[in-house]
Amino acid sequence: MAYISENRGQLSRASRGLVFATALMLAPVLVATQASAQVLSYAPAMPNAFPSDSTTLASPDDDAAPSGVTPERLRRAVVAYDTHEAPGTIVIDTGRTTLYYVLGQGRAIRYGVGVGREGFTWSGVQAISRKAEWPDWHPPAEMIARQPYLPRFMAGGPGNPLGARAMYLGSSQYRIHGTNDPTTIGKFVSSGCIRLTNEDVADLFSRVDVGTKVVVLPKNAPHFEARGTITVRPAAAVAPRPAVQRPDRQAMNLSTSTVY
């Protein structure tokens, strides 16, 4: 009987030792599981210590405007503008991507514009030879030679690269026209044409006549910083003209940022 009792005591001690050893082995797993559950379910997320790779620095010309907001210098406004050009003249400052409609007495209406990309800027004096609302587009032969995929004709309308209005410059292939992509204003993106937002081109269109003088300054011309801005009352919204495809001509939707 004593022998049996002694064996039971030894077994009891061995069992307790086995349980204790098992507990020691499982403790790290239980702690890790609990910590993981706390991180996944309850712990606050730690802020990222590094800036996003997509962060970009604003250009000084952007006037610290938030993304999607037109910089102040490209907004339509009446500004102080000293020029010898007569009232009613259009002056385009290529380097500053701005267009001025001269009012006289040292004032002008400033508009933000998009101009020719590298190798496609130009300068000189022209006159408006024709005006058109929601113009059709006939890409010139030189443009088709560079981009053979372009249509030979595109009916006027919301998808047309010329936008809501066009003012043709002399007998050249260049125009002052609208755009359906306002993000290109202030940039060097076109094949030489001068583009404004549809709202701004409609406002300018209403002020000029056939024969209006247009002075295009070189890209590297000295810049004149207009001062004393007075915001111009926004023009009425431009109602889109439905695109009409002529059965005997080709028409298609194109990107508005590089084809004109």
Rank of each mutant, 00 (worst) to 15 (best):
M1N: 04
A2N: 01
A2M: 00
I4E: 00
E6G: 01
N7R: 14
R8Y: 04
G9Q: 13
L11R: 11
L11Y: 11
R13M: 07
S15I: 12
L18F: 06
V19P: 01
L24R: 08
M25K: 02
A27N: 05
V29T: 04
V29N: 05
V31L: 12
A32L: 12
T33H: 08
Q34T: 11
Q34G: 09
A35F: 09
A37F: 00
V39N: 10
M46I: 15
M46N: 14
A49I: 11
F50H: 12
P51T: 05
D53G: 15
D53E: 15
D53L: 15
S54D: 12
T55Y: 12
P60W: 06
D63G: 02
A64S: 14
A65Y: 01
S67P: 00
V69M: 11
R73C: 03
A77S: 09
A77Y: 05
V79S: 07
Y81C: 03
D82N: 15
H84V: 13
E85L: 07
A86R: 13
P87D: 03
T89C: 06
I90P: 00
V91F: 07
T94F: 01
G95M: 02
G95Q: 02
R96L: 09
L99D: 04
Q105Y: 13
G106K: 08
G106N: 04
R107I: 06
I109Q: 02
I109Y: 00
R110G: 05
R110F: 00
G116M: 03
E118M: 10
E118G: 11
G119P: 03
G119I: 04
Q126W: 13
A127S: 15
I128Y: 06
S129F: 09
K131R: 15
E133K: 15
W134N: 11
H138C: 08
M143H: 13
P148V: 00
Y149F: 13
P151Y: 06
P151F: 00
M154F: 02
G156R: 07
G159M: 01
G159I: 03
G163V: 02
A164P: 11
M167V: 07
M167I: 04
Y168M: 11
L169V: 06
G170W: 04
G170Q: 07
G170A: 10
S171N: 14
G178D: 01
T179L: 04
D181E: 15
P182G: 05
T184L: 01
S190C: 03
T197S: 09
N198W: 04
N198T: 01
E199N: 14
D200K: 06
A202I: 04
D203R: 00
L204F: 03
F205G: 08
V208Y: 09
D209H: 14
G211Y: 08
T212G: 10
K213Q: 14
K213L: 14
V216I: 12
P218V: 02
A221D: 07
P222R: 06
P222F: 05
E225K: 13
G228S: 07
G228F: 05
I230W: 08
T231Y: 11
A236P: 08
P240S: 00
A243G: 13
Q245L: 12
Q245T: 12
P247L: 05
D248A: 09
Q250P: 08
M252I: 02
Y260L: 14
